[in-house]
Amino acid sequence: MANDDIILRVERYDPERGPRPYAQSYRVPVRKGMMVLDALNYVRDELDSSLAFRWSCRMGICGSCGMMVNGMPKLTCQDPVDRYRVRAIRIAALDHFPVIRDLVSDISDFMEKLPNIQPWITRTEEKPLSAGEYLQTPEERALYANHAACINCMLCYAACPVYGLDERFLGPAAIALAHRYNLDSRDQGEALRAPYLSLSHSVWECTFVGECSEVCPKHVMPAESIQREKLRLALRWLLPRAAFRRRP
C-alpha cells in the first residue's frame, strides 16, 4: 500500500439494515490538491457504489456537500485532505439533522422555517413601474453584503448546540437572512418580520455560542446577525413607535 493513502472512516446508515449507524473504512490514494469530497467520489467510483452523499458544484457555491469531518462541520469540496495530519479521517452526516441514509441529511425542517422570515424584498408601498427601479448606493449595499452570501449549506445548524438541543429553534442561517433583508435599504418588511422573530424559539433562544460564524464558509456571521436582531427588537420594544418610521 502506498504511503500517502488515507483512510476514510465513514459513519453509514441504512434504514433497511437497522435503526443504528455503522462504521465503514475505505483506503483512498491521495492526489495533489485532493478535497474530502474528491476522496468520497473516489470511494463511490472505485470502491463502493452504495455510499450515499450529496454534492453538485465542487466549488463551494451549491452548499450541498456539508458533512461532519473529524467532528467539525465542513463543506467537503473545500476541505483539503492533507489538512488532516491523521491517517484516518472520520466522516459523518451533519450533526443535528435526521439522517436519511449514509451522509445524506434531511434538512426539510430548515426549508419549512425559511419562508416565515420572508427572505425577499418586501415593500409596503410599491412604486409604479414608470418610477423606475429601487436604486441602492454601494454604501447601502455594503451594509448587508456579507450576510447575503449564505448558500444554505447548513453547517451553522450543525455547529449550533441550541438547535441540537431543541430543533424548534429557528436557527442561524434563517435569522441571518432576516437580518440581511432588514438591513437592505430597498426593504420595508422589518415590521412584518419582527413578530415572527419575537416568537419563542426564535432570536431570544440564541445564546451567542458563536460557533455558527466560525464554521460558515461564506463569512455570513450568523451569530453577530442574531445579536444585532435582538438589539433591534429590544429597541423596538423599549422605544416609542415613532422612532421606527418606515423607510421612504
Binding site: 434504514p15 452526516a93 435526521p98 434531511d106 426539510s108 419549512e112 448546540p161
Partner: peptide, 22 residues
Amino acid sequence: MTLRVLPRRRVYRRRMTLTWWV
C-alpha cells in the same frame, strides 16, 4: 408545505449528550 422525504421513524438521529461541549 411538507417536504418530508421519509417518515420520521425511518431516519437516524444523533443526540447530544452531557459531554457534547468537551
